[in-house]
């Protein structure tokens, strides 16, 4: 073998090794294969196991992902990233007790960055929510915000819990604090929702008008205005807004697979117009295509309300409180 002085051939043999650099096949399956080879070759490594777990998660193989992460935790018990990932996976698998265990371990990691602590607290909040402990879920959101006041999702989730726990004043104040700290447009929207839920119709209306004027797509804002107008007993204007919103929604609604955000809007518009069965139907559809708890709860609430009041009475209630 002439080792030296030989011209290097243009085709270099690839010797391998998944360094993490992308290879010809970057798909999760190939990544898993390569990472598995690496684990056999080099032995267990928390980093590699974490990488493989992420690939498993992408493929929806949560059990395998959890197994890798548990091995990774044994190798690196102080790795907050691994613990965070593991807690999330266990929660996704519906194993709330296990998720809480990993959350507890993660919170005990010394020198945890504030952002990481906040993220872990949010997972704990989700665990509490899954257990039905609303108060504790709310507290975790608040604590997460103490560690990371920039966390938009924590403001939104806290607002949601405060709404469910009937703490409207706290909710509005919390959102105003979030707007001050982050400037996030989404919190401005949520504050308006909070004002409407609280029945502060005039304030809500004043906040809605400039938003509506500056919007290209006005359907959602018209529905919000309709709620305020109804609250102020300006029913004709409200109905006009609702009809106009429904027209826009119909124009934007996809033909086959539905858009849950539009379905939620249409459901609310129909609910406010007293088309209760149609609204329930829309909430159901929304829940089936990613609308989440919000859609499910709205549908159930409407169903309960429907049983409690005859339709004509409920019509009035819907205008007052969403």
């Amino acid at each position: 073998m002439a080792l030296i002085g030989r011209r290097i051939r243009s085709s270099l043999l690839c010797a391998i090794l998944c360094l993490g650099v992308a290879r010809a096949h970057d798909s999760p399956e190939h990544q898993i294969e390569a990472l598995s080879e690496r684990l056999i070759r080099d032995g267990d490594s928390a980093d590699v196991l974490l990488e493989r777990a992420i690939e498993y998660r992408v493929l929806g193989k949560l059990k395998e992902a959890a197994r890798d992460l548990q091995r990774a935790v044994r190798l690196a018990p102080g790795d907050s990233l691994v613990l965070l990932e593991l807690a999330q996976i266990e929660l996704q698998r519906g194993r709330v007790t296990e998720a809480l265990l990993w959350v507890r371990r993660a919170l005990q990691v010394p020198g945890l960055a504030t952002g990481e602590r906040a993220a872990i607290l949010m997972i704990r909040s989700h665990c509490r929510a899954a257990q039905g402990s609303k108060l504790e879920a709310l507290d975790d959101c608040s604590e997460a915000l103490r560690w990371n006041p920039q966390l938009i999702s924590a403001y939104l989730e806290r607002s949601s819990w405060q709404q469910r726990l009937h703490r409207p004043h706290e909710r509005i104040l919390g959102l105003e604090e979030g707007i001050r700290r982050t400037g996030a447009g989404l919190l401005v929207v949520e504050r308006i929702e909070a004002l409407l839920d609280e029945g502060q119709w005039q304030q809500a209306l004043e906040a809605i008008e400039p938003e509506l004027t500056s919007s290209r797509l006005q359907g959602t804002w018209k529905i919000r205005r309709a709620r305020a107008l109804k609250g102020l007993s300006r029913r004709t204007e409200a109905e006009r807004d609702l009809q106009s919103a429904l027209e826009e929604i119909e124009l934007r609604m996809p033909r086959v697979v539905k858009d849950s955000s539009l379905l939620m809007d249409r459901a609310l518009a129909r609910e406010l117009l007293g088309q209760t069965e149609a609204a329930i139907h829309d909430y159901k559809l929304a829940a089936g295509c990613g609308g989440g708890d919000e859609a499910v709860e709205a549908g159930r609430r409407l169903r309960r309300t429907l049983r409690r009041w005859p339709p004509w009475e409920w019509h009035v209630q819907a205008g007052l409180k969403h």
Binding site: S153, G185, L186, R216, Q218, S260, G292
Partner: peptide
């Protein structure tokens, strides 16, 4: 991040699109 319509990112996306002119 949560990609679902109920997540913060999708909600922001919807609100941003409403304003885009």
């Amino acid at each position: 991040l949560d990609r679902k319509p109920s997540g913060a990112m999708a909600k922001w996306l919807k609100a941003d699109l409403e304003k885009a002119k």
